[in-house]
Design a protein around this nucleic acid. Structure first.
Lengths: 216, 216
DNA sequence: TGCCGGTTTCAATCAGCTTTGACTTTTTCC
DNA sequence: GGAAAAAGTCAAAGCTGATTGAAACCGGCA
């Protein structure tokens, strides 16, 4: 679709004409309204009417920018994907250069994962399990994110002089624990115990980092 | 509702009359069809028509047993809750009495968590986030399960002579890792790396068990 | 400067489809 | 015979996407 070229404009809304600029702003507004709907109503309860309402637009006006619902979803996936990637790239290096990057990065990811953005992404992922069309949109984005996350981590954590297998375990473990906690917290609040798990994870990650220094 | 007394009959269909027995069987059939729908179609795409189809019943016939959709959902939550509880009670002690209960229990839970039953429960949990009515049905079941899980574990793992805080960390950590892995696997297949995380978790659990033997 | 034609943006309505729950009828079993 | 179970029918409500029409805006031209 021609849409794929336009999604670049959302990230970088430097476009020529007056109208094109306003149009891009409206598109962004619609996309963010859609994401709000995913969070507040859930993916399956998100109707075009609800998105239009939240955007302060009429339904018809919205359907001018995005001819159908699936087009909005596509744009929203692109948008979220871009935001998550940038969040990772920004968070990892920012977390100081000192020895305690373990803790600060854990906390950064733990923060990210409780952000509405993650909830929206999560809604999409769950819905995609039984929605082939959505899955086909989401899968490439998901895979790209995984690759990028892994690549960035390997690149940034230069103080981890361990072999690849150990590094992978540390990465996967962190991710599973934190995402598992995030999902549990979607329903049950039990903050006290989560802190202890996080502390333990931090300790074990340090251990992994300093254990066997095989790689140069 | 009078339904709450009937849910007991699903687990123990020893009821008097001929018809009552057949009725109970039909109810179970409907409930299991509903759960199949949750797994195959997702919660929000589950319609009464789809449930009736899968059960091989007409819609009207089904609506005789369950006057409305929410009644089916209620019964399904009860059913799943009961099944999960019994699965825990059965799996934990069965896993041999030897020293290697750590591994066998991890694997048991890892197996459970990829069972369709877990997928169905997961669908319900996610849907409940934005569906107050469902949340009110699910929350008590969820809390009861958590309590029971914790209690059973403390009761059964007598070889864990550690203090409560350590035990909780071990329990929570296991749960988060395994559930996080399960959810990741709902979308991305990456079995090789999961095995390594599981191995690592096993190792750390043994370490926790044998670390500080405070409790008698 | 001021007007005009054409394009872009917004609004409203409509028909088609699906789902739901109520109602009515037929069949089965005691 | 009569009650329970199953089947079929129906209207109401909600969602989607298409169509039609109005308003705003841009560029060009006298």
């Amino acid at each position: 679709m021609a849409k794929s070229t336009e999604t670049a404009e959302e990230r970088d809304p430097v476009v020529s004409g007056w109208q094109a600029q306003k149009s891009a702003a409206t598109r962004k507004l619609i996309i963010e309204s859609a994401i709000k709907c995913f969070v507040e109503l859930g993916y399956s309860n998100t109707t075009t009417t609800a998105i239009a309402e939240r955007a302060g637009l009429s339904r018809g006006a919205m359907l001018h920018h995005f001819p159908s619902k699936i087009d909005i979803v596509k744009a929203a996936v692109d948008y979220l994907h871009g935001k998550r990637l940038r969040a990772v790239r920004r968070a990892v290096p920012r977390a100081g250069g000192g020895e305690d990057r373990v803790r600060s990065n854990l906390e950064a990811y733990w923060r990210d994962v409780r952000h509405p953005m993650f909830v929206a992404f999560f809604e999409l992922v769950v819905a995609a399990r039984t929605d082939r069309e959505l899955a086909e949109i989401l899968q490439p984005a998901q895979e790209a994110f995984d690759r990028e996350w892994h690549r960035t981590a390997r690149e940034v954590f230069t103080e981890w002089k361990v072999d690849d297998a150990t590094f992978d375990v540390a990465l996967d473990l962190s991710r599973y624990v934190i995402e598992g906690m995030a999902i549990s917290n979607l329903m049950n609040r039990q903050d006290g115990r989560d802190e202890k798990v996080l502390d333990y994870l931090e300790d074990k990650l340090r251990e992994l980092r300093d254990s066997k220094e095989k790689r140069s």
